[in-house]
Design a protein around this nucleic acid. Structure first.
Length: 294
DNA sequence: TACGTAACGGCTCATGTGAC
DNA sequence: GTCACATGAGCCGTTACGTA
């Protein structure tokens, strides 16, 4: 007979990745949780995790079991937590995202969601790692990493727009003919640039895709925030590349100007990632639909 | 019915083991 | 050396059972 406590410990190990952290989360000691898992594996007759030196990696049987019990255990946890007569507690979905995309695009789409949302920001590789570890439920990713057990759905395309302030452009010297890439490169290389980082992320990619070489640019301003870059461009610090969803409003309002359109647009795909074992969860499916990856 | 006692289950603490 | 899991020893609460 399988004890419910064994399953609760199993789910905690699955989500948190180690027996020790699962023990902490369950207010038990590590040996207690270790014994729960050993008893569950003995009852089932199969290993549910591969013991590596640093992590407990679920086996196929472990993944299958988790997908079958996770929703029921969550429901049970909610029922046990809520006081008698209280309305059923909404499930929690933990979302990881790039800050600017979430603020500009995801947040308006999530208005009226029927679950509670806990949002965290960070770089995509880190967020995907945390998704795999069970610390997040849904990640808006700027790239697809080959991670087993993660399902990706296309959420959106973002096009990078080369922008500057109208005042800066008036004093920026004579503009080259748009079709002459050598002239355009020399012209752009002579402008003041604002970059997200010293390694010139976005700018480097733009340069390589358009001019097929590395940019020789020393940015006048480095700010790891796209919103701050937008403001800095408006204030005339220099020019930069921004996602279309972020600068569209400022361009329409005349605060920014698109300086030049490359022959082929430089774009990025945005993905919505979740664990395959969570694909049965209603709240996950609904959020995927809202965010465009249904 | 009340009490004493043994058995059992589940926990913690301490420690061993293996991987990095 | 550090980190994480497994294991043995011992403690404690619960339960079953016998006895007054």
């Amino acid at each position: 007979m399988i004890d419910l406590e064994w399953l609760r410990s199993f789910a905690a190990i699955y989500r948190l990745g180690t027996v020790s952290s699962a023990a902490g989360a369950r207010y038990l000691t590590q040996p207690a949780v270790s014994q729960h898992l050993a008893a569950l594996e003995a009852a089932i007759g199969q290993s549910l995790f591969v013991r590596t030196s640093r992590r407990m990696v679920p086996t196929e049987r472990g993944k299958e079991l988790y997908s079958r019990v996770a929703q029921s255990l969550d429901t049970l946890e909610h029922v046990l937590r809520r006081p008698d007569g209280a309305a059923p507690e909404k499930p929690i979905v933990r979302i990881g995202s790039p800050q600017e995309y979430f603020y500009e695009t995801a947040l308006p789409r999530l208005a009226g969601a029927t679950c509670r949302l806990w949002v965290e920001f960070g770089p995509t590789p880190e967020l995907l790692e945390r998704l795999e570890r069970g610390e997040l439920d849904l990640v808006i990713a700027t790239q697809r990493l080959s991670t087993r057990g993660i399902e990706y759905g296309k959420a959106a395309d973002e096009r990078f727009v080369l922008v500057g302030s109208p005042e800066k452009m008036r004093s920026g010297g004579r503009r080259p003919r748009p079709a002459n890439l050598d002239q355009v490169e020399r012209w752009l290389g002579g402008l003041d640039w604002i970059s997200y980082g010293v390694e010139l992320p976005i700018i480097r990619r733009f340069w390589q895709e358009v001019f097929h070489r590395r940019p020789e640019i020393r940015p006048v301003l480095v700010i790891p925030s796209l919103h701050a870059i937008l403001k800095a461009v408006e204030l005339g610090y220099g020019v930069s590349l921004l996602p279309d969803y972020l600068c569209r409003g400022a361009v329409s309002a005349g605060r920014l100007r698109e300086l030049w359109k490359p022959p082929m647009p430089v774009a990025n795909e945005l993905w919505l990632a979740c664990r395959k074992t969570d694909l049965h969860r209603d709240e996950i499916l609904r959020l995927r639909e809202r965010l465009g990856a249904g």
